[in-house]
């Protein structure tokens, strides 16, 4: 079978934008699918969101757990740290 894909879906709105942009920046070659009301990212292998990237975009300190407000769904095991959230299949 093909390599396992991880995915993450955000609500498509202004507050979620820094997270959406950060995923796009930190995961080159990721596939992006805009559907009504939502944005779906899918990657072969792992997918990462870095706090630093989100903070640069948003211009303030960020607690990555703010992601809960914008998240719609995920696929993969979560590895969560203060500095990043990584989705990965073993």
């Amino acid at each position: 079978m093909s390599k396992s894909k991880t995915f993450i879906i955000f609500q498509d709105n202004a507050d979620a934008r820094p997270f959406i942009d950060a995923v796009e920046q930190d995961n080159p070659d990721i596939s992006i699918d805009y559907q009504p009301g939502m944005v779906r990212f899918e990657n072969e292998g792992e997918l990462i969101i870095r706090r630093e990237t989100v903070e640069e975009i948003i211009g303030r300190e960020v607690d990555l757990q703010e992601i809960h407000v914008h998240l719609v769904s995920i696929g993969g095991n979560i590895e969560e740290d203060d500095d990043y959230i990584r989705l990965v299949w073993n």
Binding site: Q35, P36, G37, M38, V69, L71, V72
Partner: peptide, 22 residues
């Protein structure tokens, strides 16, 4: 289904749907 609600102009449902889904 909730993305479908957005597609059908039902912003109220899509919001509770995605809020629940978060």
């Amino acid at each position: 289904f909730m993305s479908g609600a957005a597609h059908n102009g039902d912003m109220s449902t899509v919001t509770f749907g995605f809020s629940a889904q978060s």
